[in-house]
Amino acid sequence: MLTLQFVPYTDIEKLDSAGRIKKLLTIVKEEKIVLMQGRLKPEEETGLIEKTMESIGKKFTGIEICTIYPEEVNADLFGRLKKEFYKVLIGDREGITVIGPASLIKEIRRDPNKIQLFTSVPVRRTSPRRKVVSGKAGKTHKKKR
């Protein structure tokens, strides 16, 4: 069984960087896959990698992480200013971050607006093949490979 835990932005917005990292790692160490609204800051991402490396041991072999974030392709100056204004007002809630324990997730593929999770959990008892869980534009599909 796979457990996906949603972490809304409101759960992390008041935490400092160390608090955010601790919260996310605690969930992942419970063998759950985190679906976090928004993304970590670049320095928080390296902080998460650092803390992960420090935690690696017999039971915990690390994490798989992936973020998808809407790219600003054709935004004009007004559009960009508006976005920055919203960010200051309500925080950077755009995008989604998926973090899972490496013991459950073999690989995450980002392509660039689609996330595919390759897990080590078989789809059916009779099928030893890998299971793919892919999500695109807010939908979650499950398909057999």
Binding site: E43, T67, I108
Partner: peptide
Amino acid sequence: KNPYSQVNVTIIGNLAA
């Protein structure tokens, strides 16, 4: 290999920051 790995994105994002 697939360049979209989060480690690559994180390293490059950190350097930019």
